[in-house]
Amino acid sequence: MLSKFTISNGLMWFFTFIALVSFESFAHGVDETTRTFLLNNSGVQIIPFMYIGAKHMVTGYDHLLFLVGVLFFLHRSKDVLLYVSMFTLGHSLTLMTGVLANIQVDAYLIDAIIGLSVVYKGFDNLGGFKYYLGQQPNPKTAVLIFGLFHGFGLATKIQEFQLPGEGLAANLIAFNIGVELGQFLALMFILLIINVWRRYPSFNQFAATTNTALMSAGFMLIGMQLTGYVIN
């Protein structure tokens, strides 16, 4: 009986939250629906926080661009799994410690570094590091290190919510699980498109163009975030 109640309660929250979520204008730094949610709730809220995490990942183009860069030349499932695990390990580590230890990092600077990670991966895919440094810096280490910065980026987003201490750890874990679910969902689409595209000759013809575009998008993110940092 108890478990049934919990599940239906959770589902109710899930649907209520979906109904509430929309891109509203901001008040107090978080959007109105989130504000209302936080006003009316304290304590552990697993499903809503999972949803916020998943939504952030699926709509977080900076994380997705980086993943596109990382996955671009990976065609073995084993490699995909390995690299994605490195990224997950990196961002989970800093997400959890960043929020729990209340490490305050500037959101603009962190987002600029995330933009840099996109540029890095684009340049790496073009063979830039191999050419200039004579060898490619260990790509697994690079993914792990940039994963750490992406985690700090996620931490700043959840710190914006000014969560109460009560139930923070559980909510955070829920948020983190949501992030991974969202990432999994996004990865499926990215992999599907890349793997289908890989079969055609146009993949190799446009590989350089695609990675140049990736770098350009990364530079845009850097420019946007640094401007935000300067004027705020």
């Binding site: 490619q136 590989a207 140049t212 575009a213 770098m215 530079f219």
Partner: peptide, 16 residues
């Protein structure tokens, strides 16, 4: 990764 000749590499970076 791709291995572009250095001129293309610089060109790609500048264009981006």
């Amino acid at each position: 990764e791709q291995n572009l000749p250095s001129r293309s590499l610089i060109k790609a970076t500048i264009i981006s």
